[in-house]
């Protein structure tokens, strides 16, 4: 019942001299929405919620601020987070919706991982700071793109879009590797 859920079992899905793409076991994910004085929720979650879109924190849970009243919360287990937040609902009404099963996570890493991102994402990849995350488009599909290191990204994508995006990542990883740079 608490087994991690993924439509893509963990595996290496592409590996070239340019980049490696793999699916990883997802964490428990929640979409958190709230506004006003956030202290009760911060106490419940055990982290200070970042206020600037794109900022992340990592503590008891990992949180990315995706919008002015929106956070993505990653946790090891669902029940403690849901329980703690439910306890402060009366004090601070909010929406905490589990979306663990909604999407899969790809990790894209390697010397040219950042360039691989440019084949599908119109944002300036160089301007994305390490340790930041944002909702953006990749090949037309909505994704959450995390930059975990200069050469490592995490991409959360809805289940049904994942094969399409994975195909482009695979083609791109081969294309970059074939370039004589």
């Amino acid at each position: 019942m608490n087994a991690p859920l993924s439509a893509f079992p963990p595996a290496t899905l592409a590996e070239t001299s340019a980049a490696k793409v793999s699916s990883v076991l997802p964490k428990v994910r929640f979409s958190l929405r709230a506004r006003g004085e956030l202290i009760p929720l911060e106490q419940a979650l055990g982290v200070a919620l970042p206020r600037k879109i794109g900022e992340t924190v990592k503590g008891a849970v990992e949180v990315a601020c995706l919008g002015p009243d929106e956070w993505l919360v990653l946790a090891a287990e669902a029940a403690p987070v849901a329980g703690a937040c439910a306890e402060v609902y009366a004090a601070l009404p909010h929406s905490l919706v589990e979306i663990s099963a909604r999407e899969v996570t790809f990790v894209i890493e390697g010397t040219r991982a950042a360039e691989l991102m440019t084949i599908g994402c119109a944002r300036d990849i160089d301007a994305l700071k390490v340790g930041s995350a944002r909702r953006t488009l990749f090949d037309g599909a909505t994704v959450t793109l995390w930059r975990d290191a200069e050469d490592r990204f995490r991409m959360d994508v809805w289940n049904s879009f994942a094969p399409h995006l994975l195909h482009l990542l695979q083609v791109g990883a081969r294309e970059l590797a074939a370039e004589s740079v």
Binding site: D69, S100, E103
Partner: peptide, 8 residues
């Protein structure tokens, strides 16, 4: 608040 759960 609204959350898309189509694919959940």
């Amino acid at each position: 608040w609204l959350t898309s759960t189509t694919e959940q």
